[in-house]
Simulated scan of single mutants.
Amino acid sequence: MSMVSNSKTNNLRWYYIRKETIVSIISSLYILLFLYAATSKLADYQNFKIQIAKTPIISDFSMVLPWLVPTVEIIISILLIFSRTVLVGLYASLALMTTFTVYIYSILHFSDVIPCSCGGVLQKMNWDQHLVFNIFFILLTIIGILLQPSTKQNKVVQNP
């Protein structure tokens, strides 16, 4: 009986290790994405600021967004580094990527002016590609949130 129980515990342990690995990969992708995006925006801050001011949908916020967006991206990246705050970071990533996606959709469907305020490699994408890219990351985030083990599950695996 103890052999079956031990085998079950080992299987559970491997199951949660695989889940944690997937969540770590998703978190790492977001850390890379957000730190890259924030760095690109800050490196070309004046251009980013001008592009934000040209965008009809968000031009009213052109004084605050150029520093707020990279700051939020950096904060989320920090949240995703630590295991205690990964879930909060994933929810924040989901909120930010959803906001970006709604913004892109709105620009594509309701705006005559389509400026690009993204930096680096992301600037090379057209708007439709960017929309697909964002949706892909939203799906990754949802997977990461669903795979995030609850504290009760962690206690069962850690204390067989």
Rank of each mutant, 00 (worst) to 15 (best):
F48H: 15
D60Q: 13
Q46C: 00
A37L: 03
A53V: 00
I75C: 11
F61T: 08
L79W: 10
V69E: 06
L68S: 10
V64Y: 11
F48A: 10
A37P: 03
S40Y: 06
F61Y: 15
T55I: 05
L79S: 02
I57N: 09
T39V: 09
T55V: 04
S40M: 15
L65C: 00
I76S: 05
Q46A: 13
E73V: 07
V69N: 08
P56K: 05
A53K: 09
Q51S: 10
T39M: 11
K49F: 08
I58G: 09
S40N: 12
L42T: 05
I75H: 03
A53D: 12
F48M: 04
E73D: 11
I58S: 03
L42N: 03
V64F: 14
I74M: 14
I78M: 08
I74D: 02
N47Y: 13
Q51R: 14
A38L: 09
L79M: 12
L42P: 03
I74R: 01
K41Y: 06
N47E: 10
S62D: 11
I75V: 15
V69P: 02
I57A: 14
P70D: 08
A43I: 08
S77N: 03
I76N: 03
I50K: 06
I52P: 00
L65S: 04
T55N: 14
I75W: 05
I78V: 15
K41A: 10
A37V: 06
Y45E: 01
L65R: 04
S62T: 03
L42H: 09
I58C: 07
I74S: 06
I78H: 06
K54E: 14
V64M: 09
V64W: 11
V69T: 11
L79V: 01
I52E: 04
Q51P: 07
I52L: 05
T39K: 15
P70L: 02
S62Q: 13
P70T: 07
K49G: 02
V72W: 09
F61Q: 12
P66K: 07
D44H: 14
Q46I: 09
A37C: 07
P66S: 06
A43W: 13
K49E: 12
Y36C: 10
A53E: 12
E73L: 13
L68A: 14
D44F: 12
S40L: 04
F48K: 03
A37I: 02
I74L: 12
A37E: 05
F48T: 14
I52R: 00
I78S: 08
S40E: 14
E73A: 12
A38M: 10
S77A: 15
P66W: 07
I74T: 12
P70I: 07
Y36N: 14
P70M: 04
I76Q: 06
S62V: 07
P70N: 08
